[in-house]
Amino acid sequence: MAEILNNSGLFFALLGAAFATFLAGIGSAIGVGKAGVAAAGVLSEQPDLFGKVLIFQLLPATQGIYGLLVGFLILSNVGLLGGGVEEISLLKGSLYFAASLPIAFAGYFSAVHQSKCSVAGIGTVVKKPDQMGKALILPAMVETYAILALLISILAVNGIHGIQV
C-alpha cells in the first residue's frame, strides 16, 4: 500500500502537466475558433482587413502556450523529459498538481472571455480601421489574468522542485 502511495506521486505530477495543457488549450481552441468565425465574416465582406483581424484571432491563443509551458516545466522537474524519472512522493506529486491549477483554470476562462472581447474588437476595426490600437488594448487587458496565473504556476512548480517532501 505504501509503495502504491509513493508511486502515485508521479501520476499526480503528470496529471498536473496534463491539466495545465489540456484546460488552457481547450480555452484557447474555443477562443481562437470564435474569433476566427468573426474574422471570416469580416473577410467575406472586406478581405483587405486580413492582417488586422488575424491579430485579434490570435490573442486568445496565448493561454494554450502558457499551459504548455507549465506542462513542460512539470515534466522536466519530475525527470520525464530527461529520461531519469525521479521517485516522487504522493505529497510532492499533489503539489505539482495544485501548482498547475492557476494556469489551467485562469487560462481556460481568460481565453474564452478574451475571445468575446476580440470579436467585439473585430467589429470595431471593421467600422473604424483607424482605431485598431485602442480596439486591441481591450482584449489584451484580459491577458493580464492569464499572465498572473502563469506567474504563480511557474513560481510554484519551481518552488516545489527544491523542497524535500
Binding site: K34, V37, A38, A39, A40, G41, V42, S44, E45, Q46, V119, I122, G123, V126, K127
Partner: peptide
C-alpha cells in the same frame, strides 16, 4: 447566442454602407 458571430461580423461591415 454565439452561433450568430459570423453573421454579426458581416453586419458590422454592412452597417457602414
Amino acid at each position: 447566442q454565439q452561433e450568430y458571430t459570423y453573421a454579426v461580423a458581416r453586419i458590422r461591415f454592412k452597417e457602414t454602407k
